[in-house]
Design a protein around this nucleic acid. Sequence first.
DNA 1: CCATGCGGGACTTTATTTGACCCATATGAA
DNA 2: TTCATATGGGTCAAATAAAGTCCCGCATGG
Lengths: 342, 342
Amino acid sequence: MRALIDLQKKLVPDLLQVMQKRYAILHSVKNLQPIGRRGLAENTKLTERFVRGEIDFLNEQGLIDITTKGMLITNEGILILEQLTQFMNEIMGLNVLEKQLRETLQIKDVIVVPGNSDEHDWVKQELGKACVAYLKRVVTDDSSIAVTGGTTMAAVASVMTPLERAANYLFVPARGGIGEKVENQANTIAAEMARKSNGEYRLLYVPDPISETSYQSIINEPSINEVLQLIKGASVVLHGIGDALTMASRRKTPESILTDLQKKKAVSEAFGYYFDQDGTVVHKVRTVGIQLEDLETIEYVITVAGGKSKGQAIASYFKQGKSDLLITDEAAAMEILRDYSL
Amino acid sequence: MRALIDLQKKLVPDLLQVMQKRYAILHSVKNLQPIGRRGLAENTKLTERFVRGEIDFLNEQGLIDITTKGMLITNEGILILEQLTQFMNEIMGLNVLEKQLRETLQIKDVIVVPGNSDEHDWVKQELGKACVAYLKRVVTDDSSIAVTGGTTMAAVASVMTPLERAANYLFVPARGGIGEKVENQANTIAAEMARKSNGEYRLLYVPDPISETSYQSIINEPSINEVLQLIKGASVVLHGIGDALTMASRRKTPESILTDLQKKKAVSEAFGYYFDQDGTVVHKVRTVGIQLEDLETIEYVITVAGGKSKGQAIASYFKQGKSDLLITDEAAAMEILRDYSL
DNA sequence: CCATGCGGGACTTTATTTGACCCATATGAA
DNA sequence: TTCATATGGGTCAAATAAAGTCCCGCATGG
């Protein structure tokens, strides 16, 4: 729906304005009914002639009845008005949220989709769709796209379609894998995205996390080094944000470190870095793949995360992390703004 | 999105035509590029002056480039065109499917939502939304709405909102309950729908299926009889369609009957009736609630079912069953049409 | 009965659209 | 290189639509 609105803004810029105008008139008729044309004109500060044109139209469409008593809204008019109210609230409200988040987080762009990923799976799908639409805009020939794992990234993969304006693009995982939930692994997700979008992919067969000793030896492996160069040279990085403790236990973090994360009040995790509420890195695991400092040289860093329960994790990441675009949902957006106002 | 387009059709029909016109021009430029204004005018059967106004607009919007060689579409123009093509195909394609289904199934109305419920949860949510929108149109004061169980009905309940144009409406379960998956039970769903829509509800505490002996005694219970009258007197019946064998095992059907259903090639189940591929009832269990013959006197029978895997079950039901409206998804629609062409 | 509000009719002025053609420049083929 | 043709920008007059305002018969309510 957001995509359709943006499309219409390009193609028929005044469409939304006309729609809003007719909504306002319909709304006034409902509130003031029965009301005559002149009363309505005076009330809405519009000219009589203009109001007349609009009410003639609305009458033809069956949304109002014109009587000698004055104009009345029809049942269908009420229904349309309700739907329109919902829709207007949605668009307007989301635009306000986006603006607030852009300013609060100091990032270039924010896309907010309606709903709460914690409650409805379709919201995650909408996050995914918004992300795919953005990729279609920024991915060019020979681009590399590094993607992390996670359920939100899996949702992006599930709605992926061909990026028609680019050729020869390549998906790579942003980090290695662990032994759990193969469908949420960066490797699996990269492969799925590539398959669905008719792109190429390379995989990274490295355990994550990895010990310092193994790290030093494994990054010298030619096959690993080759993929790693592609990963570090990606023009687009697509990542989610996890809840710190959830991610830590998912990644089989030792008990002592789990306790440490709790003590240090770790809130979020991304790329193997754990952030507290103020965005301070309180722990880092050794990973093969994208490091936090690599993001500075990435052309487009896209963060996709939603759900009310993720709000604070997202807020904590953004106090430190680099991102060009946040794609989130309404519930998380509210929570982020709440966090920043504390 | 369907809702938004329908809304716009009512409110700004003229501007939707402008949109389609600009789409057509953009499409022609892409196909014929590089093309001059006069060539385009001739090709589209529009006047030069008109084409000029439109191309000036499209140029200002950055969707085409105007060169001495002729006009070319920009990258952004291609993107907009693709997205718009997708939307147009979706809307147009769905309209075609709906028409085909209306004619094939011989029913008054069909609503097809995009996607496949088997693959994406959001498609079920869209089925639910379409259903709620329809209820808002047909439910009047003091209506009774009888609802069956099932995951699709649960999805309807999950997106239910107040039916603002009606007052004092009542949700009732169309049949009793079994001991499994409380959230998919007709009773639970009726209660949830009532809660979310600020309506009333009555529950039916009767096992389903029920033996003939118990049936005869239980329908004489005043409290049961009272609810049963409400159920049979409902003006709206909302029901799903199940896969026969899945439903039978879910309802703890004895092994001998399961074998019988398999032998008789039962395909679908609704209201305790099992239908084979030709729509013949091959088995019936005793239920307290709506019977198949009761549907003849119900004002609005709404069938909600989707998913490719359900296509044949839906097709089988419609060879016999009564329905005023089918709300389904694209994947099921194709499968139904396929079934009917065999 | 009378005052007031209603919607439909209508008029004049202003703005925009519309269709067609002109002209300088660019392009492509011979 | 030349020439024919197509290009886009400019322009004009006529047609149409928009815009604002007021008139008038009828309906409504006090």
